[in-house]
Nucleic acid binder design. Structure first.
Lengths: 138, 138
DNA sequence: ACGCAACTTTCCGTTTACGTAAACAGCGGT
DNA sequence: ACCGCTGTTTACGTAAACGGAAAGTTGCGT
């Protein structure tokens, strides 16, 4: 169950807390760990997820909904993990972030084109339907 | 090669025309046919793709870039193939189209949230970088 | 101390979306 | 008639992202 194993005010989650909360299987969470996208602490052999892990999981699942592969999502997570004390790291993360941003914007554009086309199709179909219905109404 | 086998002014494409034009393999085109997403004509055993097939292929590839599965894309293509003379078909296509539109809009929203978060991260990193660089400049 | 539920690791299975030969057919050029 | 190219079908292989079952361990309630 969800709780606090220490005396601090941090919230902890078991693997089943998270799988229930996000409607995924424990197997999926272990898989994300296998490929290095999550790294929960251990109490003995049991996994203990912190708030940080929960946030990362949310990012992973959103990435999946958006159609990204796990390696792609992994790269995006890495952006948040960069060491902010090293100049080269900062420059690198900005550069990689900009590249990803351009990609995401392109995807938004294509989505909006798709939406536009579907709206036009819908209008056409609605128009035909109106004509048929008024004819039948005679 | 791309050409016109008849005397009309329609353009035809071989399987290699299309695979070269869209940078995919012939195998991929045959696969889309296997799963019923394309249906080129035949001259003997050879596939002949018309403009209509080319447009459908564009839709398929865009769908893939947006992260949709082939069955999902297949459903979207079906929207364009609905018989516009049947009232029930028209109503059905409008309903299914609206459902897909809601989905697409949701995807746009999630993408824009992701973009926003990356922009904030970028600003944070840029800020840290500026501080470090001015310190070094002393 | 005992049982049992919750967790663990390990490993083989499955689906999607093709990749990759193998083996054959038709056709334009020499 | 033979070559090479382009195309075809058939069929097994593969990577990604888990699913699912087996077998072992651990902590907790009584």
């Amino acid at each position: 169950m969800e709780g606090q194993p220490g005396l601090n005010h941090e919230t902890w989650y078991t693997i089943n807390d998270l799988s229930a909360a996000f409607d995924i299987t424990a197997r999926t969470l272990r898989h994300y760990e296998d490929v290095g996208m999550l790294a929960p602490l251990r109490r003995g052999s049991q996994r203990l997820y912190r708030e940080r892990d929960r946030v990362r999981l949310q990012l992973i699942l959103r990435g999946r909904r958006l159609g990204f592969s796990l390696p792609e999502i992994h790269d995006m997570l890495d952006l948040y993990d960069a060491d902010p004390s090293e100049v080269t790291q900062l420059q690198d993360v900005i550069k990689r972030g900009d590249a990803k941003l351009a990609e995401l914007q392109e995807q938004v554009d294509e989505l909006q084109t798709t939406i536009q086309e579907l709206l036009e199709l819908r209008a056409k179909m609605q128009h035909r339907l109106d004509i048929i219905l008024t004819q039948e109404g005679l």
